[in-house]
Each structure stands twice: as C-alpha cells, then as structure tokens.
Design a protein around this nucleic acid. Structure first.
Length: 284
DNA sequence: GCGAATGTTCGCTT
DNA sequence: CAAGCGAACATTCG
C-alpha cells in the first residue's frame, strides 16, 4: 500500500476510529519489523498509552500518543493497516497487533493490525523528547501539496541533475510521497518523457510538472476516498486497478488522449509506462 | 521456472 | 568524493 494518496486514505479511514482508545496490549509476531527500539521494549513502552491522533508525512504515518510519544511507520511495498474486531479473521502475514480498549468487554475489543506480505514495512517508536531520526523521515523534501512546490523549486533542486526526471520525482528528499505509480501518472499529465535528463527540461516543462504534481496527487486522494466498511472489505487494496489510472500498468493499451499505444521502458530500475506521442523525447 | 511487483538502503565500481 | 548501478530485503502472481 504505497504512495502518498493511499497513505492519506489510510490516515483518514483509521484516525477517527482509534482516537482516544487505549492500547491494552501489543503483540509483535515478527520482531524484525520493529526497527527501533527493540520489539520487547516497543511493546512495553506502548502498553497502557492512549492514542491522541494520526498524521502523515510523505509516505510515513505517525500515531501520536497522549504522552507525546509517537509511533512512526512506513508500509513500503505491501504493508497494510487494518482496524478489525478482535474476532475478525486474521490476515496471513500479520506481524503486529495492537489491542485497543473500546470500552467493550474482553473478546469484543478492536485491533489495529499490521500485515505485510513481503515484510519490508517498518515501525519506530520515539519518545516525546527524541528528535526524528532512525526512520528517514527527517530527510524528506517538501510535501507535493505544499505551496513551496513551484517550477522555481523544481528547477533549483533538479535543474542541474543529469539523471532521468522520473528518478528525480521519486527522490523523497526533494518531494515526499511520489512513487512509481503516480510518477508515471504525473509525467503523462505533464506530457514529459520519463527518461528525459532533468537538466534538459526548460522552465515551461518545470511549470507543467509543478502543476501536474499537486493536481494528480489531490485528484487521487479524492477518488481514493472510501468508507471504513469498504476499506476493511477490500483489505485496504481499493486503490488498485481502479479506472482512474491513465498510464501506470497500461502498456500496450491505447493512450486516452491520442490513441497511440503506450510503451514501457525501465528508468532507474523501475518499470515506466508512457505515450510515445504525448510524451515525446524532446532531449534528442 | 522466470521476471516483475506500490519502496528504500547498502555496497561496490566508475 | 560523488554518481551510478545492481543487489538485497521476502513473497506472490502471471
């Protein structure tokens, strides 16, 4: 469950349901998914704490506690957060279970469960006086929806780079939250070939990108909206294979703008789909 | 059986 | 020293 729009969706679905609940118990089945502190300490420190609210930064989620301690988590490729009744069938590859006190008697409580097929997802717990470190959250660049993201910002940070513009969009230290799906969508909207060296873009093209990034990201946040019931039914996978994606995964299919067939190349080790007409390689 | 999959980090080579 | 590249992490799916 990966990129910014999905993480924002998870936050909006889960946060209202866990606010104010106390963590009765934490069960870690796979200690390697807890990066800091050690898993037993992670459980001990969280037990008895009450959840205050949730925030998102890039693809990271934070669960804040009344003590001002905070859980930081990153779902990486296949991580999933589900809020379920305690007697709800457990997903395969469930690695952490937070048992939450919802005022009902034992056996009828709520659980916040982390499952992750590939087990790349990670958790951290930082105390109120601990600065952001360990997790990488401190290295993130601007939020895509922040007004500082302008053509000038992109040109200043990326305009001298030789690497492909798509790789630059994936650099979390410049813009936080764009991944392989939405970089393809953004480049399609902006009409830019993914493998173009960033230093070959002109200001007009940076303008197109600076407009496409917040437009596409906010669009997908909107269309991803889902009720808690639907979210649980679809196991948080609702955003996949939706009719809203225009480029990602559309290799061999016709471009919705011009009808030309979408092509696929590898850019920076990532599969990249583009329209050879709408995203012509203007660097050669 | 092979290759690729929403992400990030590490280590080696240039 | 920085940039670039592949491997690694672990599992599933087509």
């Amino acid at each position: 469950m990966p990129e910014l729009p999905e993480i924002e969706t998870i936050k909006r679905v889960i946060e209202p349901q866990i606010k104010g609940l106390m963590i009765d118990k934490v069960t870690v089945k796979r200690p390697e998914v807890v990066s800091y502190p050690a898993a037993d300490e992670f459980c001990r420190l969280l037990t008895g704490q009450t959840i205050s609210h949730m925030t998102r930064r890039g693809k990271f989620l934070m669960i804040w506690l009344n003590s001002n301690d905070r859980i930081i988590l990153h779902l990486r490729m296949t991580g999933c957060l589900l809020l379920t009744p305690a007697d709800y069938p457990e997903e395969k590859h469930t690695h952490i279970i937070f048992s939450l006190n919802n005022g009902m008697e034992e056996g009828h409580s709520t659980e916040l469960r982390f499952s992750d097929t590939r087990r790349f997802g990670r958790f951290w717990l930082l105390g109120k006086d601990e600065a952001d470190t360990y997790s990488g959250i401190e290295k993130l660049g601007t939020e895509p929806l922040d007004k500082v993201l302008t053509a000038e910002y992109l040109n200043a940070h990326l305009g001298k780079r030789k690497k492909a513009v798509k790789e630059c969009l994936l650099d979390q230290g410049i813009i936080a939250g764009i991944g392989n799906i939405y970089s393809d969508e953004i480049l399609f909207t902006a009409g830019i070939y993914p493998a173009r060296p960033a230093n070959s873009l002109n200001m007009e093209e940076w303008e197109h990108l600076a407009a496409a990034i917040p437009e596409r990201i906010s669009y997908f946040i909107e269309v991803n909206q889902i009720t808690p019931e639907e979210y649980l039914e679809t196991k948080g996978q609702h955003y996949r294979n939706t009719p809203f994606l225009q480029a990602y995964g559309k290799e061999g299919k016709p471009c919705p703008k011009c009808g030309e067939t979408f092509c696929r190349i590898v850019v920076g080790g990532r599969g990249s789909v583009y329209c050879p007409v709408c995203q012509r390689d203007k660097s050669c």
